[in-house]
């Protein structure tokens, strides 16, 4: 986890330095603000990873001498199949089309988004199926 943290913190640091140089030199706000936000995007997750990298047990994927057996055990839960991503995607599609073809398309659009949100969450709870 250390390498991951250092990567993000390093990027954040670089963006911070670049932001300071650029903003002071150019006095142009749009780029300065965007670089500042980029710095935060390096520091926030990087800081989180750094915090936990010092507190968590060493993971087998960070151990150069780990055996496959060390990684045995539960990796996580993976849904086999699910219709909800498709439903949500179609909802987003109709919602965007509503921006162009008429506000009435928000009815199927947001309806599908809501249906997919409920369906997807309950699928996660009970271990769903198609």
């Amino acid at each position: 986890m250390r390498v991951e943290a250092k990567l993000l913190l390093g990027l954040g640091l670089f963006f911070g330095l670049m932001c300071a140089v650029y903003w002071n030199w150019s006095l142009e706000n749009a780029g300065g603000v965007m670089m500042f936000a980029a710095m935060l995007l390096g520091f926030l997750p990087g800081g989180y990873y750094y915090f936990w990298s010092r507190r968590m047990r060493a993971r087998p994927e960070d151990d150069p001498n780990a055996t496959a057996a060390q990684g045995a055990g539960v990796v996580g839960t993976f849904p086999g199949t699910s219709i909800w991503p498709f439903t949500l995607g179609m909802g987003a599609f109709f919602t965007v089309l509503a921006l162009v073809f008429g506000i009435w398309l928000l009815i199927p659009g947001l309806g599908l988004v809501g249906w997919a949100a409920i369906g997807g969450v309950s699928e996660s709870r009970r271990g769903g199926r198609v």
Binding site: A69, T77, T81, V130
Partner: peptide
């Protein structure tokens, strides 16, 4: 179905999992 996925130890050679679930467009 949601699979609770476990990573096998190296020595194990589990049989290929039965491919079930929908086919085609679904």
């Amino acid at each position: 179905m949601t699979d609770l996925l476990e990573r096998p130890a190296a020595a194990e050679h589990p049989e290929p999992a039965e491919q079930h679930g929908p086919t085609g467009l679904l």
